[in-house]
């Protein structure tokens, strides 16, 4: 029984390691400036917990075989070792807390700094199963919006066109284009329930909370089309709340924007 259990634990451990190390399925390549640092921290953490995982399971398996009941005699009456306990408490505390501190670096860069001054502002307003994207237009200012004016057919964010700043705002649905290599400042809102803006290659996830305007910023460094998924349960077709993030070169982006400017 002891051998069998140790064997099973060993096989499970090996299988797990193979599954993780083989990367048969893995995260997509990062396209944001901060993405690689998150990936590095992830791999570092994964390595450390991987070692801990192997050590712990191997020790367990080894003890199971080595100290299975055999022959005569008794177990050892060994039940305390303050020095040993102090040692492993210290080691785990140091390792875990170092990881915790290291784990704050990207976070601090993303969330403790204000968006850089020249950043392009984009407003993302989530609603049940749709992403509404708004650009401030040539004047660089978002116009006033009013809840009563919201109309899913032609005014999804409720622009108040009596405000001059609103007249050049550009609103798209589920299509979010951004220029590559430029800081993007996203203002996240929601019209109804909580949604979460999740673009896996961007390594960016942030809830959109009704009643709040949440600011995030990032910089994409590779062009392409990527999917925006909702990562917070928002209702019936949560699993189909798909938008697209288009990372374009600066001129393409300008062209894209102009095509969508109201005539």
């Amino acid at each position: 029984m002891g051998f069998a259990l140790a064997l099973v634990i060993g096989v499970i451990t090996l299988g797990t390691v193979v599954l993780f190390a083989g990367r048969f399925w893995w995260f997509p390549e990062a396209i944001s400036e901060h993405g690689p640092s998150i990936d590095r921290q992830f791999m570092l953490t994964l390595t450390i917990i991987g070692i801990a995982f192997i050590l712990a399971q191997a020790t367990l398996a080894f003890f199971i075989v080595r100290y299975r009941r055999q022959g005569e005699g008794r177990a050892s009456y060994w039940h305390d070792s303050p020095r040993l306990e102090a040692l492993w408490t210290t080691i785990t505390a140091v390792v875990f807390l170092s990881l915790a501190v290291l784990g704050q670096r990207v976070w601090a860069k993303l969330h403790l700094n204000a968006p850089p001054p020249g950043a392009l502002q984009v407003e993302v307003t989530a609603q049940q199963f749709v992403w509404n994207i708004r650009y401030p237009g040539p004047d660089g200012k978002f116009g006033r919006t009013r809840t009563e004016l919201i109309n899913d057919v032609d005014n999804p964010v409720g622009l108040d066109f009596t405000d001059p700043a609103a007249q050049d705002d550009i609103v798209t649905v589920n299509q979010m284009a951004i220029p590559v290599n430029r800081d993007i400042h996203v203002i996240l809102r929601s019209k109804d329930v909580i949604h979460s803006f999740w673009v896996p290659p961007l390594r960016m996830k942030q809830d959109a909370v009704p009643g709040l305007a949440i600011n995030i910023h990032f910089k994409a460094v590779k062009t392409g089309q990527f999917e925006i998924a909702c990562a917070e349960l928002c209702g019936l077709t949560h699993h189909r709340m798909r938008g697209f993030l288009l990372v374009l070169s600066e001129p393409e982006f300008e062209r894209w924007l102009q095509q969508r400017a109201s005539p």
């Binding site: 998150i38 921290q41 995982f53 915790a100 976070w107 993303l110 996830k205």
Partner: peptide, 20 residues
């Protein structure tokens, strides 16, 4: 052990961004 160790990933703010 297995379930606890993945908590080390989720407990880090930076890594929670993609994993949350």
């Amino acid at each position: 052990v297995t379930g606890g160790l993945s908590g080390i990933v989720l407990g880090q703010t930076s890594l929670d961004i993609p994993m949350h």
